[in-house]
Structure formats: structure tokens, C-alpha cells
């Protein structure tokens, strides 16, 4: 695949290239040598994920009551963390878009919304499997479960609303407003176990080896979803750039 830099040539000022303020590491991505910038993050993330899997399977001891089913916790908590962080990025990017009217932030918001939707969905699925093993029910309208389901529904709505609007600025505006409204659910998800009486564990006591496995799992998930976020955002930027260049080529 030809690099964007090859198409753009040496000049940085091109019509349609007003892609907004983006972090330096993301701007330089397309100009870096492939081995330097593309392989190393992949290898590091892959190693972290492998280390996380090994820690969950081998390092973490088997829990007495739930047995191996308790190991779901390590991936469930990590997915929940990524979902919350992802939606926080959506809301923050939406706010920055509204303040600066810069579509660069909207690309971050869309990429983060996809990650948040995926992570929230995985949180619900793994939580449901855990609940069946622990509480003998697939689902219960417990405050934290309900708040997480609402967050997943909001991220689904966010993606659906975006897909229905053609104009990029209108799409970004609608998405930003929806994300800011939906972000009100984030403190509810975090504090639900403290504010309301429910059956979801607050912060269970764990052995040090379990804590290490959980921490490693969270770090591995964050790195992996972070990498996906950066790659997806790069795709969105390239899509917009290509659209602008095609319009220019059509005359």
C-alpha cells in the first residue's frame, strides 16, 4: 500500500488536508519507517497480552468456591475498565470538538466509541457468564449491571446516530452532544455498588498473585485496545483525506 506521505508529496499544505490538531505521535505515524513505528507497538502489545494470559492461567491461583469460573473476573474487570475509559475518551473528544470545531477530535471520538461499544458488550457477556456461575442467574436488574447496560445502549445509539448523518460537522456535533449526555452514566457505573444496595461485589479481597494477574490483565487490555484505537483513528483520518483528494481529483 502506498504511504500517505507519497501521495501528499513534500508539501504539507494541501487542499482537504485540514485534518485538525492531532497528537504528534499520531501525525508522524504515516511518515515513520514501518519497522520502527508499526511493528514495535504490535510486538509490545502482543507480549503484554501473552503475559496477561499466562498470568491469568498459571500465576493466579484457583479460587476455592467458584473454581476456574472465577478467572473470568480478570478479563471482565479489564473489559469494563476499557469500556469506561473508551467512553470517557468519546466524551472528552466530543467536548474538544465542540470547543474547537476540529474534525480531528471527531475521529478520536468515533474510534473510541467503537472500542467502548466492544468493551461494554464484552463486559456484559463475561459478567453474565460470571453471574451464572456465581449467582445462578444470567441476568438480574442490579444497579451496576443496569448502568453498564445503559452505557452499552448509549454507545450503540451513538454509533447508529453517527451512521445516519452525512455531513461530517453535523455528525460530529450530534455525536458530541450524545456522548456528553451519555457520559453522565459513567459515575453511575463506577459508584453504583457504593450508592445502591446490590449483589455486585464492591472490591473483593484478593491474594497478591490474583492482584498481579488482574493488574497485568488490565494493562494488557488497555494496551491492546489503545493500539486498536490509534489504528482505527488513523484509518478514519486517511478515509477523510482520501475523500478530500478524490473530490479534488474529480475537479
Amino acid at each position: 500500500m502506498p504511504r500517505t506521505a507519497d501521495l501528499l508529496g513534500p508539501s504539507k499544505e494541501r487542499p482537504g488536508d485540514n485534518l485538525g490538531t492531532v497528537p504528534i505521535f499520531a501525525q508522524r505515524k504515516w511518515d515513520c519507517p514501518p519497522l520502527g513505528c508499526r511493528i514495535i507497538p504490535d510486538v509490545l502489545t502482543g507480549s503484554l497480552v501473552a503475559a496477561g494470559l499466562l498470568a491469568i492461567s498459571l500465576l493466579a491461583p484457583t479460587e476455592k468456591t467458584m473454581g476456574d469460573a472465577q478467572r473470568i473476573l480478570y478479563v471482565h474487570v479489564a473489559a469494563a475498565w476499557c469500556g469506561l475509559a473508551g467512553f470517557l475518551i468519546v466524551a472528552a473528544s466530543g467536548l474538544l470538538y465542540l470547543l474547537r470545531r476540529d474534525l480531528g477530535w471527531d475521529h478520536w471520538a468515533q474510534a473510541a466509541a467503537e472500542i467502548a461499544w466492544l468493551s461494554c458488550g464484552l463486559t456484559l457477556v463475561t459478567g453474565s457468564l460470571w453471574a451464572h456461575a456465581a449467582w445462578n442467574t444470567w441476568w438480574t436488574w442490579e444497579p451496576r449491571l443496569a448502568a453498564t447496560a445503559i452505557l452499552w445502549a448509549v454507545s450503540s445509539g451513538y454509533l447508529i446516530v453517527r451512521s445516519g448523518v452525512e455531513d461530517p460537522h453535523r455528525r460530529a456535533r450530534a455525536g458530541a452532544v450524545l456522548a456528553l449526555v451519555g457520559a453522565a452514566d459513567i459515575p453511575l457505573v463506577i459508584m453504583a455498588t457504593r450508592w445502591f444496595r446490590g449483589i455486585h461485589p464492591v472490591s473483593p479481597q484478593m491474594e497478591p498473585a490474583m492482584r498481579v494477574a488482574l493488574l497485568l490483565s488490565i494493562v494488557a487490555f488497555s494496551a491492546f485496545f489503545g493500539l486498536l484505537l490509534v489504528r482505527r483513528r488513523g484509518q478514519l483520518r486517511l478515509e477523510r483525506l482520501l475523500g478530500a483528494m478524490e473530490r479534488e481529483a474529480d475537479g
Binding site: D68, I72, V75, H76, T126, W130
Partner: peptide, 9 residues
């Protein structure tokens, strides 16, 4: 249950 959760992820 553990395998199902990981497979889903």
C-alpha cells in the same frame, strides 16, 4: 464457563 468467556472475548 471460563473457556466460554474467553472464547467470547
Amino acid at each position: 464457563t471460563f473457556v466460554a468467556a474467553y472464547a467470547a472475548v
